[in-house]
Design a protein around this nucleic acid. Structure first.
Length: 114
DNA sequence: TTTGTGACCGTAA
DNA sequence: ATTACGGCCACAA
């Protein structure tokens, strides 16, 4: 049973993703203390909806691709918003080696947002 | 109660 | 590069 506490932790993690960086459902789950439960992150995001104004577009599949099907407005919006933040996509795929969010960066570099 | 379905993922072939 | 498979597990039918 997914305690609302779990969802709160997930939301808290997503709120920390800096502008211009991305992460994966799996990584969010791990950082939230819920290893192996990537699907739950997707659920949480779906339930949260636009009300909470989360940076949902910064959460991608582990492959660097959008989780939304090609041709959907959600996917287009996600790509657009990432582009606006300077996240490059090559063939609909973000190079995670370059744009993956590393929580340690913030601790070492300070709270400056890209 | 069982089954199918996801904003998913890692491994292996 | 792709496909397949097993894990994951709340939710709805």
């Amino acid at each position: 049973m997914p305690s609302s506490d779990d969802y709160d932790k997930i939301v808290a993690v997503i709120r920390q993703i800096p502008v211009g960086r991305v992460t994966s459902y799996g990584q969010v789950a791990e950082l939230a203390g819920l290893p192996g439960r990537a699907r739950m992150v997707g659920r949480a995001l779906r339930i949260a909806g636009p009300e909470l104004q989360l940076p949902w577009h910064r959460v991608l599949r582990a492959s660097g691709q959008s989780a939304f099907p090609a041709g959907t407005t959600a996917r287009d919006k996600q790509h657009q918003r990432l582009a606006d933040e300077g996240v490059l996509m090559i063939n609909g795929r973000v190079d995670l080696r370059r744009f993956r969010w590393d929580p340690l960066d913030q601790l070492l570099w300070g709270p400056e947002r890209l």
